[in-house]
Design a protein around this nucleic acid. Structure first.
Lengths: 200, 200
DNA sequence: TGACAAATCTACCGATCGGTTGATAAATTT
DNA sequence: AAATTTATCAACCGATCGGTAGATTTGTCA
């Protein structure tokens, strides 16, 4: 738990550090947090368990870093671009499109690891949940603007916001490369489904 | 793994048996499959770990029984009633309504434990996934009928079926009694959201 | 009441868990 | 080249894991 005097300054060290976190995310998506042992992870990156702890503070902290990094990516590649859009309908459409697109490119690590937040300490849990809450509020706010413009169906925006993110995050739970469904089709259909659900 | 000569014939024994499986589902929802130890479960039902194995064959089989039982319930309380409805629009509306209602009554065990199917043996996994697939097909088929009747939006019914079940199952992931949102409102809004998403 | 089965116990099994110790090798800096 | 930092290792720690052996208590039924 306590931060050791670990220092990753080398270029090769930085690469190894990234490799550790990427492998950890991949393994935890496959087997879950408690189902992934530190020995598993060490073997996956070709290190001993002891060497692994040169790069991480603890298993728990590693999960927190993974979730935080995924949220950073969401912020820069979805939230920030969307916030720059004035028209609420276009903004909402872009929020959905960009999130779906990012999820299909990344493998959907965050959507699948978000439930594992239960293994974090309370303060870390709250930090993660708060950032997700802010994202939901962004979607709900766009819908409120649409309501004022008379373009929205008569519905509860908070519940609808949940439904929207569930359809997008849900893609990670059922999509498989072997299905033959093109990614672009999924993105397009997901945007259409949700916009049609809420617009008059 | 192998079936022991366990026999639960007493009335009190049957009650204990149910209690074990209910407690197991509750704990696994909270902490996940690998995060729930058999000692945890034994303590939760006031037994020793050894006595627990009088009621179950293995941890893995217990998970399979929990998922199978939840699917039995889905069949009798959602699928069968809906199949008796001729009009595809009413049938689909009922499928969504009944599933959302059942989920909010039961605590949504199945929706939350379904991802834990990865801990089952391959044959058990396939059995569970097949039953879910059949459920998705039922929804997709209703949409195909709506399409023939000219009532459906231009969309991919397989993807839309996934989106629908994700919004419903997703309720289990965000609903909390402390939110103050009445269950009836959630059911109504979920039906409305999805029907409006797919109908012309 | 005697026999038998159901239900539960204490004590244990080998394996694995997350994590650490203390030493050493490799790279970088001075 | 010496000093320092970064990266890695084998070996180990106490705790817990899923599961079992074998005996014992509790309840049912003839």
């Amino acid at each position: 738990m306590k931060d050791p005097d670990r220092t990753i300054a080398t270029v090769a060290g930085q690469a190894r550090n990234d490799e550790v976190y990427r492998a950890a995310a991949r393994l935890m998506v496959q087997r879950g947090y408690t189902g992934t042992s530190m020995t598993d992870l060490a073997n996956a990156v070709g290190l001993t368990k002891a060497a692994l702890y040169h790069y991480i503070a603890s298993k728990q902290d590693m999960l927190f870093q993974i979730l935080s990094h995924a949220l950073d990516t969401l912020e820069t590649s979805v939230i920030d671009p969307a916030k720059a859009i004035g028209d609420p309908e276009v903004r909402l459409r872009e929020l959905i499109r960009l999130q779906a697109q990012g999820l299909l490119e990344s493998g959907g690590d965050f959507a699948l690891l978000f439930p594992e937040r239960r293994h974090l300490e309370s303060a870390q849990q709250k930090a993660v949940v708060l950032r997700v809450k802010n994202y939901l509020d962004l979607i709900a706010e766009a819908m409120r603007e649409l309501h004022r413009a008379g373009k929205l169906q008569d519905l509860n925006v908070d519940i609808a916001a949940r439904h929207i993110v569930q359809t997008v995050a849900g893609i990670a739970r059922w999509y498989s490369k072997e299905s033959g469904i093109p990614k672009e089709l999924i993105v397009e259909q997901t945007v259409k489904f949700n916009m049609s659900a809420i617009l008059k």
